[in-house]
Amino acid sequence: MLLTPDIVPAVTSTGATARVAANVAPRFRVGDQILVNNIHPTTHTRLPAYLRGKRGVIERDHGVFAYPEHHAHHLPEKPQHCYAVRFTARELWGSAVNSRDTLVADLFDDYMELR
């Protein structure tokens, strides 16, 4: 298809959600304590390296989204839940940082295990 000026307003005001209307069970519930997998794929991932091997808590379930790891490489779809996961700043950066500070990252089911 050709992007023409007349459809630009519709494209910008609609976009393209990555949310998937699939009935996929969540692996985690809000409040669950998780451990981020210590993985180092050479392919595409949305899991930042500084979170790997760290302990966090599920704060919010955002629902089901396309899995970027598969989407990037045209692998079969693997839609799954994406969660806001909270970490203490000290879990990530050690005892020198403020004990109140936290970091929240959006992580997929496949990135974590219960601990």
């Binding site: 298809m1 050709l2 992007l3 494209v11 393209a16 990555a18 392919t43 595409h44 970027p68 790891e69 989407h71 990037a72 490489h73 045209h74």
Partner: peptide, 13 residues
């Protein structure tokens, strides 16, 4: 994006 065939994630990669 509308004609090429790439996904957003592929573009990022």
């Amino acid at each position: 994006f509308v004609f090429c065939g790439y996904t957003v994630d592929e573009f990022r990669h």
